[in-house]
Design a protein around this nucleic acid. Structure first.
Length: 284
DNA sequence: AACAGTATCAACCGCTTCTGC
DNA sequence: GGCAGAAGCGGTTGATACTGT
């Protein structure tokens, strides 16, 4: 006899959260702290399952979450870490403390995967026009809405930023909670898409230069704040040196791994070199 | 204006892992 | 060590917004 799913109970509400529900949840967590999710619905009177409460808090109500506008540095981090680990969104999210795993997963599925496909096309046409078997296909998961077509050049940047206005409304009601505002993304998207298209015309995807351009300054800050290894394991003094050593070993191992695709190896080589530079600066 | 197609993202589902007994 | 319940995770879905015809 298996355990019935918590959300199958009669009277449990599903679907989008209302601002009122958000306020109740946030107020409760402010008083009692996150955790013990099982008791949340009973103690708050919310007609939600514990799972739903946890998800709502983790992905949208938790303080310090940054919404929308992924920076080139963040994109680079996601692309690099996804190439290394695959779809380990929680692990990837641990390196981007202001982002949730759900947000990263969505961003990967809706933006980055397409960009990488575009990049592969550019590589295929540029490097192996007559023999595609030389360069195996990318190891990108096709899960999700794979039936949907690539965005056309003319409508690729038509989507305004519609990030949860309700969450922002809640944030206004809750003093001290920092949910960032969502500045206009449209113009930036238009510019980057323009650059991307121009780049493809030239045979080089300029947008991907920004995707893979790890900002040494940001990396530096991250290293200093200890975000690179969030679960510890190194002392402050030798952290950078240890990371550099590990990265070199990892890079060598990865490059020797015959199962890696052409793109994987290229990605590791390119971005890892930049990372190593940043880390070496930290050591020195 | 109406409709179809597409992109986006919040939320759900089911499986796995963790934790306490 | 084994079990049950809780929590976490990743894949998927559905509602919605937007564009093009």
């Amino acid at each position: 006899m298996g355990r019935p799913p918590c959300c199958d109970k009669v009277g449990i509400k599903k679907g989008p959260w209302t601002p009122e529900e958000d306020i109740i949840l946030v107020t409760y967590i402010q008083e009692h702290g996150p955790g013990n999710w099982r008791s949340v619905p009973t103690n708050t009177g919310l007609l939600r399952c514990s799972k739903s409460c946890r998800l709502r808090w983790t992905n949208y109500l938790r303080p310090g979450i940054k919404r929308g506008n992924f920076t080139p540095h963040e994109e680079g981090m996601i692309v690099h870490l996804q190439a290394l680990w695959g779809n380990k969104w929680a692990a990837i999210a641990s390196y981007l403390p202001q982002r949730t795993d759900n947000d990263i997963k969505n961003y990967w599925n809706t933006h980055l995967k397409k960009k990488i496909k575009k990049l592969q096309s550019a590589f295929d046409s540029q490097m192996a026009p007559s023999d595609s078997t030389t360069y195996p296909p990318l190891s990108i998961s096709t899960a999700g809405k794979s039936h949907q077509n690539m965005p056309s050049a003319k409508n690729a940047h038509h989507y305004p930023n519609i990030y949860a206005s309700s969450t922002q409304n809640i944030s206004r009601l809750l003093e001290g909670w920092m949910i960032s505002s969502t500045p206009q993304k449209k113009l930036a998207d238009q510019e980057t898409n323009k650059e991307c298209l121009n780049g493809l015309v030239e045979g080089v995807d300029f947008e991907f230069e920004s995707v893979l351009a790890f900002d040494n300054g940001c990396w530096d800050k991250m290293m200093k704040s200890g975000d690179y290894y969030p679960k510890g394991g190194y002392g402050n003094n030798d952290k950078a040196a240890c990371i550099l050593h590990e990265r070199k070993l990892q890079k060598q191992e990865s490059l020797n791994n015959a199962s890696l695709t052409f793109f994987d190896r290229w990605l590791l080589d390119e971005s890892a070199s930049q990372l190593d530079g940043a880390i070496e600066q930290q050591v020195n």
